[in-house]
Design a protein around this nucleic acid. Sequence first.
DNA 1: GATGAATGAGCCTTCATTCAT
DNA 2: GATGAATGAAGGCTCATTCAT
Lengths: 191, 191, 191, 191
Amino acid sequence: MAEARKPVPGARTDARRNKEALLKAAASAFVASGVDVPVREIAALAGVGVATIYRHFPTRADLVVAVYRLQVEACVETGKALLARGSQPYAALVEWVDLFVDFLVTKHGLAEALRSEDATFQALHSYFLDNLLPVCGDLLAAARSAGEVRGDIEALELMIGVGNLCIGVNKDIPYDARRMVGVLLAGLRPE
Amino acid sequence: MAEARKPVPGARTDARRNKEALLKAAASAFVASGVDVPVREIAALAGVGVATIYRHFPTRADLVVAVYRLQVEACVETGKALLARGSQPYAALVEWVDLFVDFLVTKHGLAEALRSEDATFQALHSYFLDNLLPVCGDLLAAARSAGEVRGDIEALELMIGVGNLCIGVNKDIPYDARRMVGVLLAGLRPE
Amino acid sequence: MAEARKPVPGARTDARRNKEALLKAAASAFVASGVDVPVREIAALAGVGVATIYRHFPTRADLVVAVYRLQVEACVETGKALLARGSQPYAALVEWVDLFVDFLVTKHGLAEALRSEDATFQALHSYFLDNLLPVCGDLLAAARSAGEVRGDIEALELMIGVGNLCIGVNKDIPYDARRMVGVLLAGLRPE
Amino acid sequence: MAEARKPVPGARTDARRNKEALLKAAASAFVASGVDVPVREIAALAGVGVATIYRHFPTRADLVVAVYRLQVEACVETGKALLARGSQPYAALVEWVDLFVDFLVTKHGLAEALRSEDATFQALHSYFLDNLLPVCGDLLAAARSAGEVRGDIEALELMIGVGNLCIGVNKDIPYDARRMVGVLLAGLRPE
DNA sequence: GATGAATGAGCCTTCATTCAT
DNA sequence: GATGAATGAAGGCTCATTCAT
């Protein structure tokens, strides 16, 4: 229905504007209070009504995905580029993982959400995996083929592990996710 | 409901019995729904009124700590024993960490709670750290002195990392926390 | 219950209508059960959900103040008019106090609330005092200047005394607050 | 039943000791937190179990009455003495009322309780009135007979008024109940 | 007689979500 | 399309009162 009729260009412009304000607001709110920040808070921040959020993003997962889509895509692209480079596959894997970690670590609450049991976040989880797993899988396979990493670790497991290590950053605790991920990757070396 | 109530009409003597029933119920409830399961749910499971929980465990943290106290203590004891053994400090560290992981992994939701930002769990977090950190620190120091592990990783960071890797087990996802912790520990090796 | 709900399905326009229904319901509830009547009761009486109350009146004090605002304002206005009249300041004071008493006496529970130690009602107390004290003060000062009342009683003390005398009316006890306030005012006469 | 059997003197001694501890504790608790202080608090203060309170004082009113019985009786006695004096009936009334006010004012929360609508305090209210009203009535009648006070105020009304004026003392508000009662009594003078 | 453990009703408050305008 | 008012379920916590020991 709604999609079928694109007659009032002005309204559409407003809608897009709104959607972008929403994404910006949500991004802030997610960073400040986690991805399970009250809907009202996001709406207020964006200067729109709550229902507007529901219109554009029926579920919370939709909103979260939308907020992080660009960065996920960038991550995918960079991964492909690293892969295309062909040489030094372990270094490429490390580089890519570092990128992924940078992404997670700067999104307070995202890593947590990815691990959440809450059904609300299932779609979020899927989105990340659907997009990033292939890339990670290829990078890992390349490293494995070159004999640069042990062969018993699967990409999914690695991604989950890395994601988990990124949880809880930004607290006042002396915990450096990047360093721990570095240790994990070092542990990937054969023998 | 009503039938479930009146667990053992007696009192004085049964206070302890009741407390234990509560601990058992809480343990189940924690596993099933996380440590932030509604108080009412635990009470129902234990067949007691909510106030009974509040009597025995004024705050939620008290309850959680009580539920895991024995196992934390066992973990501490084993750690001391391993330390006393003196030889092969890296192996001892690995053995102890495996124990810690076994503990966390079988307590669905505990690792998550340990990372929770919720003030309610601050005491829980402290309890774990106060008790386990010294042991882990000693084991790590021993391994470090023997030159068996790299020197730039602190015990707190290691414990948090290990704890994080234990999050989200028990889902239907093929993720083996023990294996990932193994990788992390392998990454601790020097060079 | 369910039938009572859905007062007027409309919204935007009816927000005010709803708010007024709420005020009316609250007024009744306050009279019937005191100003610390459960929120749920007011909501039920108004035929709205509890959250609707919280939307319109974030704190209980807000609601109480709203309920009595008009009358307080009227009391202030009348007081100013009496003051402007200039002549017979003691008579003016009596007239104004009678008005105040009429107000309190018909609001079973209000006088009590004004004296409540509950922090919830601090704002209510302040509201009344902030608005009525100046008027009372001026009337009293005028009477004092004219030598029509003794000089050692302050307006605040008088208002509190009058308010206290209005407590507990409407019970089945033969107590006439108006008459007692009359006695109090008579006692204000010099010598 | 219980009254019929007075065999175990030891137990009875304990019981009386307990009762007195309870009265002392209740007195403190009433002053500190009002007469509706939680039962548990009183019990804790007295170092007894809650049930012990219920045994000795089935209702809260029983406890409150017991706590103030001595003072009420003293008030009655003094009243009778003043009455017996015969001369200067208005002065006697004032003196007695001052006594009553001293009593109320030093019992934070008592005046409030006397006016409370809570059914729990009905018995308290009755006790006070049953005992004090006759005395007050006699003193007032004497003054009235002597033409020292106006004739349209009944003793009950006076007592309630005085009681009301004693409410809310001890707050940080500059309100002197004794002075206001003085004004009220002055207002009682004829003409 | 005394104890204090247990009960459970009851209150406040928050938030996701719907829906009439 | 946007709005934001309204809903009502849900959860935490307290306290008077009962009752087995």
